[in-house]
Amino acid sequence: MNILVAIDELDPSCHHHLEIATQLARAYGGGLIAFHAAAAADLVHAGRTLQQLAGGVSSEVAAYGESGRAMAILEAADRHGCDLVVIGTQGLDPFVGRFLDSPAHMVLAAGRHAVLVVHPEHGLRKRGPRTVLAAMADPDFSTRVLQHGLHLAKALNAQLKVVHVGSREEDPVAVLLHPREPHSSQRMVAEAAAELTRAGVPSEGLVVPNYAGLADELAQAADRLDADVIVIGSSGKLDLAQWMLGSIAEAVLHRSRRPVLVVPNLTL
């Protein structure tokens, strides 16, 4: 897997994103390139600065035009055959992000690549057991999410938690008080976890009752499980309604400071 890490600010804050991308590139055994989109007048200076900041990582600086930084990032990812884009954020504000052309929002909205969004407050732990949380919706839509979760868990030598946000009737306390046949979503996550375990990653299926809303429940589950990465799907390129109101994946990004891998339904 080839990875492009998009460097927005050419200062020491980029080391956090570079460190995470480097960890993943080593784990996957793939290539890594650090990329920065600069104004045409700043290309030479930006190139030298990025080369110094990136250390031994291959780097590239390209000019962005009227289409903006996000399009330059997407074009670079295509040019280098990258499967994953790593991009940082200081917190994705829904209005600033959508209406003032935040590169992270625009790259996500394009739906062309899997995108790992990282926050400066949280990275991948270097030691100890790791956990990947894969958010499961319906089985057909979640296939690519589970595949990415499986590959990521293998690369990081992590356990995998398959989490589905279900109805309030699936609250563990309610199930104990009123035992009955397993709910379809409980069977769904159990079957998915069993298949992933057979594929070589210790996995567990969990159903979380929906009291606070999908995004909040997923973010809270990630905190309880101390997940290193949340893997969640999106429907691909956002339509106008999703752009204005936000998708579940972007809502999770607003609520969690953990790395979030967003997998568009158009790519593996």
Rank of each mutant, 00 (worst) to 15 (best):
E181D: 14
H119C: 02
L266R: 14
R144C: 07
N2T: 09
A219V: 00
G149Q: 05
A109V: 04
Q51A: 15
H80C: 08
L176H: 13
F141I: 10
V208Q: 08
A25M: 03
Q90S: 14
A251Q: 15
A114L: 03
G31Y: 02
N2D: 15
L84F: 04
H80D: 02
P139V: 09
R258W: 09
A193L: 03
G56D: 15
E19T: 14
G88A: 12
G200R: 00
K237C: 00
E60D: 05
Y64G: 06
Q186S: 07
A174Y: 09
F99N: 06
G246K: 10
E170I: 09
A153R: 07
E60G: 03
V252H: 09
L10H: 09
V107T: 09
Q147F: 11
H45W: 09
V115M: 02
V207R: 12
D8S: 11
L10M: 05
C14N: 04
A72C: 00
V189D: 02
M188Q: 15
L176I: 09
L146F: 02
G55F: 13
Q242N: 13
L253F: 07
E191Q: 13
V229D: 04
F99C: 03
V262T: 07
Q159M: 08
V115I: 04
I230K: 04
D8Y: 07
G111F: 11
A221N: 06
V260T: 08
I232A: 01
A155G: 11
L253D: 05
A174I: 06
D101L: 10
V175F: 10
A37T: 00
Q220A: 15
L268Q: 15
L124Q: 12
H80P: 03
L268P: 10
H80R: 13
N2C: 09
